[in-house]
Write a protein that binds this DNA or RNA. Sequence first.
DNA 1: GGGTAATCTTTACGCCGTTAAGACATGGGG
DNA 2: CCCCATGTCTTAACGGCGTAAAGATTACCC
Lengths: 210, 210
Amino acid sequence: MPRPRAAPKHAYHHGDLRAALIDAAVQILEKRGEEALTLRAVARHVGVSQAAPYHHFADKVAILAAVGEEGFLHLSAAMEDAKATAGRGPRDILRALGVAYVRFAVRHPSHFRVMFSGILASRDCGSLHVAAGRSFELLLGAVLAAQQAGVLIDGDPARLALYSWSMVHGLAMLHLNGVAEGPAGVLGTIDELAEGAAEAIGRGLEKRPV
Amino acid sequence: MPRPRAAPKHAYHHGDLRAALIDAAVQILEKRGEEALTLRAVARHVGVSQAAPYHHFADKVAILAAVGEEGFLHLSAAMEDAKATAGRGPRDILRALGVAYVRFAVRHPSHFRVMFSGILASRDCGSLHVAAGRSFELLLGAVLAAQQAGVLIDGDPARLALYSWSMVHGLAMLHLNGVAEGPAGVLGTIDELAEGAAEAIGRGLEKRPV
DNA sequence: GGGTAATCTTTACGCCGTTAAGACATGGGG
DNA sequence: CCCCATGTCTTAACGGCGTAAAGATTACCC
């Protein structure tokens, strides 16, 4: 499927309808929530007929998968940023990756929700899995480096990466569900909580002197 | 709202339609997935007209909230079970609670998904929040006991409880999204992973000798 | 310049959530 | 014993949704 050209004259051929549809979907998710995300609403938002999206996406789930893929790409970028700017030791990198993960979830809740709404599990959309795998490999690389530096316990690095991921993923999810504020009082900003969580899992997986 | 009697004669009055609807919703979720959960399908499954559910639930979200509440009640029961049977030290209790959490999520994925599908965040259904709060307080109590026993670091116990919760919640969520198996190879059974995760967060939050 | 392929529209079908109005059963007061 | 008030369920209907089929419109290639 070749991408169409960029300058539509008479607006019958849109130009880059596929990207516009994804953008519209994200905007609707952010402004009006998940239940307002309708294929027809997306089409209306772009100013196109209700059947037009079917020439670019197989069905509604496919457009959600595209949103999820975009999210994973952005997440990977954010993690690489964190990795680049954090930097001294492998423990700092791991901690920065964790904080960046939570921050991404909080700043892009619509993307994040879609990324883990079950599409990953049910659908066989390959590019989504590739994008998700890329994010995981970023974390895995940091874990491996930390292991080789001798600051993390031995064991399957994928397993340690999964534990680290679980920690920050759980915090992000609970925060998005309004749980992290707790019934009474405040536990701190989500950034503080993320730092604490990254610190805790770092301590949990660190190699200790005998 | 008084519960109706138990023995309907002519099946015009169902007897306990509310409970039957919740059961049917759970069964549909387990057998045919979330997208097959339709208010009309629930009504059909019970053998009742499509408008009947509206005499027991305000709308579709309300029946989902009821499923979520049921889930939190079952979760609390499972956690109390784990607490009762685990039991030597406060660390064992905490670890058992974490494992029980993951096991519950894996054994009752439909309930679990509904419990954290955003209803908790968006809706103001009180009884759901009460049930969720009860589960959290169970964990909070164990954290407090561990702190008083001197095996957990100092600090806001609610915050430590949130970290523990995040750890196992993240693992459960990632597993339900098919991530915990990883792209290549097997990291172990989910029970093993849960034990490892509980161990890791336990180490991360434990008080160490100076 | 004309045909072929890609892109978009119109129209339609069946299902969904939800509501309004009416039918049916049940239990308490004459 | 009967009757009616109340709670419970049904029928019928509306608009919106996902999706498919078929036709209209545009762009590209020879």
